[in-house]
Design a protein around this nucleic acid. Structure first.
Lengths: 140, 140
DNA sequence: CCGTATCCACAAAGATACTG
DNA sequence: CAGTATCTTTGTGGATACGG
């Protein structure tokens, strides 16, 4: 893995600094965020991380219930970005299989890091929110 | 750092599996994604990673130009989630300083990972997109 | 200087119906 | 089964004006 693109240094005082190759740009982070940011991409990647899935299976597995349309849109975007491979079997009825590409698999490691951090800090976040809300909400 | 919450195992065939503590839940990932997903949070965190900043400074530094409203909204959300600490000096004119909390600093490591991955795979993503577009767009 | 409040524009997401 | 097309609804972001 490469780790030379950005640097996080923590001085004694505890102030990490993120340095980018292209300071005027967004460090390229937005490329990923645009994929992470939309509501469903991560779920699709997570489900696909488990293996090859067909459209309907994918839809059923996703918690909360994704609409056909959104699944199509999401999966198409991921395909376009080279994270997902789509294989069509021209049978009747048609069958389409989705699976992660090499890059898609490497992406799952990011998702894992995200999940770990999230689970780790969820209590702290919840506490912070409760704290904030109780402090602000008293005299409204 | 804890790393026991989720597991990415890569069998011989190359199929990583992300296992979550709460399978019916979203692995808690969405908590983080909601913060990552919005347009400005990451930029604010990146700028704040460099040190303490005042409102106007923060606004000036953010590439692309964030509006007052969005900066306020963003910074408030981050404060509510315990990632940013806001210190008000009741002077005239008023002075407000923003800085990352402990949790905010740990969050910068995620952002770094994101930036690294993004920069690493940007060429591949661009290539995949060009490929996809040229294949789909010919006879439209 | 550091916001809040209001209004508006646009894009994303949901529901539904229809097709190869 | 695996979509596409269309409509409606919601959410996010920008501009502006005003307040402490």
């Amino acid at each position: 893995m490469s780790a030379g693109h950005t640097a996080v240094t923590t001085p004694a005082a505890g102030e990490p600094v993120i340095t980018c190759e292209t300071p005027q740009d967004e460090c390229g982070v937005r490329d990923v965020l645009d994929r992470l940011g939309d509501k469903w991409s991560v779920y699709v990647v997570v489900e696909l991380a488990a293996g090859v899935l067909r459209f309907k299976e994918l839809q059923r597995r996703i918690h909360g219930g994704i609409s056909q349309r959104m699944l199509t849109v999401t999966v198409r975007r991921l395909e376009r970005d080279g994270l997902v491979k789509r294989t069509v079997y021209p049978t009747i009825p048609p069958q389409v299989e989705y699976e992660l590409t090499e890059m898609g698999h490497s992406f799952t490691h990011l998702v894992k890091a995200l999940a770990d951090w999230s689970i780790d800090h969820r209590p702290a976040i919840a506490a912070a929110r409760a704290d904030y809300d109780s402090a602000q909400g008293v005299d409204v």
